[in-house]
């Protein structure tokens, strides 16, 4: 284990964490403000990636393709809100779980019909295709740096919107006390739609940004969705700051666990059993982390204020 390798893995972990944050941020707001469990958030991430595939190929430009993909993801998300989600806000969690589960089945399969089951990819844009030299002459792809940067920028923007604007103030108030916000005369329906559109855009953005470095395939959203759940539970429901911190922790723990667990276990046991145990343990690591956090703090690390 060299410092160079460690550095690369830390960067990978950060980049993974940033991606999780983008997905989890929208989701945690939807949970917190609307008390609505949206399992279909993951397929919206997947859709962002697929739309990026199509629009980048169509326009030949990554940036233009990204913008169009985002717009299309937003339109699609709003259509879903209008057709399905809006009728579920007043329902209990069980109904929400089931209906959005049905949506996942439909969209995962629909994507297969339209784009095929084989993994697709988006070429890394020309201007970001190089590498950056780290110490020891180790190279790290520029695009991944760009992704980390873009994620941080979005995080900053989110912080600004939620912490410094009137809409953000309503969001925070709504996350802790929705009836009070509606008593203030705010159109709660409109607020929900804004939150929802926001979340959809973020998930779509994450999917589109991930498209050049991950394989784009049906079901890719499901894994991310469950990881985003873990992030939200660790961070505290409805808390953007919590989601940010937890996403980075989960990204780092998962990435570093997968890379170094074997080496670590080799200190205590023989190579084959270290390999077997390492594989099992590293795949369970973040769930164990979640269990420990919940055991110590059932509300998560940084719960949004006002929720009890």
């Amino acid at each position: 284990m060299t410092t160079g390798l460690l550095l690369v893995q830390i960067l990978n972990g950060l980049q993974f964490g940033i991606l999780l944050f983008l997905v989890a941020a929208g989701l945690t707001l939807v949970f917190g403000v609307m008390d609505f469990i949206n399992l279909a958030h993951g397929v919206q991430y997947m859709l962002g990636a697929y739309l990026a595939v199509t629009f980048v190929a169509l326009t030949g430009s990554f940036v233009l393709g990204l913008v169009l993909a985002l717009a299309a993801a937003l339109v699609f998300g709003l259509a879903l809100e209008f057709l399905v989600f809006r009728h579920l806000y007043e329902r209990d969690h069980l109904d929400q779980v089931l209906a959005t589960f049905g949506l996942i089945l439909l969209l995962n399969q629909g994507v297969k019909i339209i784009w095929g089951a084989a993994p697709l990819s988006v070429p890394v844009p020309e201007f970001l295709s190089g590498n950056v030299a780290l110490l020891d002459g180790i190279l790290y792809p520029t695009y991944r740096f760009a992704l980390i940067g873009a994620g941080l920028a979005v995080g900053l923007l989110l912080w600004f919107v939620v912490d410094r604007t009137r809409t953000g103030m309503l969001l925070r108030a709504g996350a802790s006390n929705a009836p009070m916000v509606s008593a203030l005369g705010v159109d709660i329906r409109k607020l929900f739609m804004i939150v929802f559109a926001f979340g959809t855009m973020l998930a779509g953005f994450a999917g589109a940004m991930a498209a050049p470095i991950l394989s784009v395939e049906p079901g890719m959203g499901d894994t991310v969705l469950i990881l985003a759940f873990v992030v939200i539970v660790i961070g505290g429901i409805g808390s953007i700051r919590g989601a940010f911190v937890a996403a980075l922790i989960v990204g780092l723990v998962d990435t570093l666990g997968r890379s170094f667990m074997n080496d670590l276990l080799r200190l205590f046991m023989s190579a084959p059993s270290a390999r077997a145990t390492g594989a099992a343990l590293s795949s369970m690591l973040i769930y164990l982390l979640m269990a420990v956090v919940l055991f110590l703090r059932p509300e998560g690390l940084l719960p949004s204020r006002g929720r009890t």
């Binding site: 399905v84 579920l88 329902r91 049905g102 949506l103 089945l105 439909l106 399969q109 297969k112 019909i113």
Partner: peptide
């Protein structure tokens, strides 16, 4: 083979 495309909406309709 794409039965889920039918089944998913059926679940949604059932819930609603």
């Amino acid at each position: 083979e794409h039965w889920r495309v039918i089944f998913g909406p059926l679940i949604i309709l059932f819930v609603l």
